[in-house]
Write a protein that binds this DNA or RNA. Structure first.
Length: 568
RNA sequence: CGGGGCGUGGCUCAGCCUGGUAGAGCGCCUGGUUCGGGACCAGGAGGCCGGAGGUUCGAAUCCUCUCGCCCCGACCA
């Protein structure tokens, strides 16, 4: 294609509304324009990249025997009511009514639709297993769209769904997806981690998330470089660092002492001269409308996911100050387990500790010599959030915490949808059995954003050839030199003949403008046709590394093709 | 939903406090000179100052309401 004819609206300056790098660059490089909060138009360049990403996804999905479909985005309430998610999804779902006042929604995901298709058609174990997928726009009424294309209200997802007769079948489908996903992300040039994850509102027994390390991300993962353990922070386990100071030995009774104005763990630590790890942190939570006191070591943080899981609670929240006042007759900052009249659950790191500091449930007073199991009773669970510096439960090496972008998530759904929606087949004994399902998502747009987050520099985007909008740009330096224009045109045609995705920068612009734009847009290879043409030479430049080699003009296209092959 | 910030040509922003006929740079158009990392000269187009109400002789500027966008938090298939 000829650049002069293309719509590539690059910006010299960074638009003010963009905060994260990928967003800034997508706007500056003319890939996207924003219509409204969380709604983006994907312009020519973005669409080319997305099509390449989707082609990779299709190739790998097809390779594991998955079949592509196209499903409605507009969906009737009935199927969501059947699965129970019409209520569960709450405000996250876009809902509307048709002219007959029937309830509809815009699909956030397609478990219900796929299950509905399957239950109408799958009758026999002989038809299993099946893997069906779709690449489509999905909708979520985000409370706060943000970070450019990372959290949006309308987004392109690939979702696949597996149907199996039994658990080993599901395991196989899950593993196939795991492997296919690794290949997809590798081909997209991403550095990623597959981590254990919480299944959340999707339901199901086991799930793995695919995460790309990035400061623009919203998720944290815990990783052990040594043994490969990796988990979402919501779920991660670790061995905490030992308390900073040993507990006082001896069998003491709790003893109240005055701590005027000392409310936070840090203030009490400073006041007592004892480290935070010698304190018991008391958090008042409300789980499914019932008060619960959660206890942690002073320097630890509560994992709300683990807390909810421990109580099997659907909804949890911190208690309001007014509630705390009523229940304890003291304010947050002076609370403790001794004498608390509610369910108490404690993190395992408190098990076996003695003579710690805790709030006295009286404003401006704390207790010393508080011993779990003696001075109060609690149920022990793992409630603690992993922090950097903890050690791995498998190998004892240090755990690292990384900020990440979630680009894929695969779930063993189990029987959640097949049970509620009645998807059953006959097995070889003629008995009716419920089909077991899995679901497997990839955020297509997120791959693009994540790739840019990982691969950019001060000059712009540096995507790998596999997903860059063009593979090579041929740039004549001086258009007024007919020889350069002719040579560039010829090289461009040779690139096309070799199957390279090429663009000829035939704009009547100064060379600096063309170089800057090519760098910004992120075309992996550039053939510069300039003054060395007099000696029959042109330059082949690699965007990422800035490496440049002179080659005879007639061999330039071949040289680029070779570089593309090497990179793949 | 709570807290904060911002809405002025396509983009980045000044002007607002202290009301008096709307500015700069970049981009865009025309002509010319240029041509290896976002050129130069000359000429030109383009703005209901987010919207509505109010105060005032007079509002981009002051007041009220409203809409939108961004950030932090809550939330996050």
């Amino acid at each position: 294609m000829y650049w002069s004819k293309l719509f590539i609206p690059t910006l010299r300056e960074t638009p003010a509304e963009a905060e994260v790098v990928s967003h800034q660059l997508l706007l500056r490089a003319g890939y996207v324009r924003q219509l409204s909060a969380g709604l983006y138009s994907y312009l020519f360049l973005a669409q080319r990249s997305l099509l390449k990403i989707m082609r990779i996804i299709r190739e790998e999905m097809d390779a594991i025997g998955a079949q592509e479909m196209l499903l409605p985005a507009l969906q009737p309430a009935e199927v969501w009511q059947e699965s129970g998610r019409w209520d569960v999804m709450g405000d996250n779902m876009f809902r509307l009514k048709d002219r007959f006042q029937r309830d509809l929604c815009l699909g956030m995901t397609h478990e219900e639709i796929m299950t509905d298709i399957a239950r109408g058609e799958l009758r026999s174990y002989k038809q299993l297993p099946q893997i069906w997928y779709q690449i489509q726009t999905k909708f979520r009424d985000e409370p706060r769209p943000k970070s450019g294309l990372l959290r949006v209200r309308e987004f392109l997802m690939k979702d696949s769904y597996s149907f199996d007769l039994d658990a080993p079948g599901l395991d196989a489908a899950f593993d196939k997806h795991h492997d296919a996903y690794c290949r997809i992300f590798q081909r997209c040039g991403l550095e990623f981690s597959a981590v254990e994850a919480d299944s959340g509102a999707m339901g199901g027994s086991q799930s793995t998330e695919f995460m790309v390390a990035s400061d623009a991300g919203e998720d944290y993962i815990a990783v052990c470089e040594e043994c490969g353990y990796a988990a979402n922070l919501e779920k991660a386990v670790s061995v905490p660092q030992s308390p900073r100071a040993p507990d006082p030995a001896g069998d003491f009774a709790p003893e109240k002492f005055h701590t005027p104005g000392r409310k936070t763990i840090a203030e009490v630590a400073e006041f007592t001269g004892l480290p935070e790890s010698s304190q018991i942190k008391s958090l008042v939570m409300v789980a499914d409308e019932k008060p619960v006191l959660a206890l942690l070591r002073g320097d630890h943080h509560l994992s709300e996911t683990k807390f909810a899981a421990a109580l099997k609670a659907r909804e949890i929240r911190p208690a309001h100050p007014a509630e705390i006042r009523v229940w304890f007759d003291a304010d947050a900052g002076s609370l403790g387990p001794v004498g608390a009249r509610m369910r108490i659950i404690a993190d395992r790191a408190l098990s076996g500790r003695r003579n710690m500091i805790a709030g006295a449930n009286e404003d401006d007073y704390h207790l010393r010599h508080v011993t779990p199991g003696e001075d109060f009773e609690a149920e022990f669970f793992d409630l603690r959030q992993v922090v950097a510096g903890d050690t791995c439960v498998n190998c004892g090496k240090p755990i690292e915490v990384r900020k990440t972008i979630e680009i894929g998530h695969i779930f063993k759904l189990g029987y959640k949808y097949s049970e509620s929606m009645g998807l059953r087949v006959l097995n070889d004994a003629g008995e009716e059995v419920t089909v077991i399902m899995g679901s497997y998502g990839i955020g297509v747009g997120r791959i693009l954003s994540a790739a840019i987050e990982q691969r950019h520099d001060k000059d712009g985007i540096a995507l790998p050839a596999s997903i860059a909008p063009f593979t090579v740009v041929v740039t004549p330096v001086n258009r007024s030199e007919p020889a350069q224009a002719e040579a560039a045109e010829k090289i461009y045609r040779q690139c096309l003949a070799l199957g390279l995705d090429a663009v000829l920068d035939d704009r009547d612009e100064r060379p600096g403008v063309k170089f800057k734009d090519a760098d910004l847009v992120g075309i992996p290879f550039r053939v510069t046709v300039g003054k060395k043409l007099a000696q029959g030479q042109v330059e082949v430049v690699t965007r990422r590394t800035r490496e440049s080699r002179d080659v005879p003009a007639g061999e330039a296209a071949q040289a680029v093709a070779a570089l593309v092959r090497d990179a793949a």
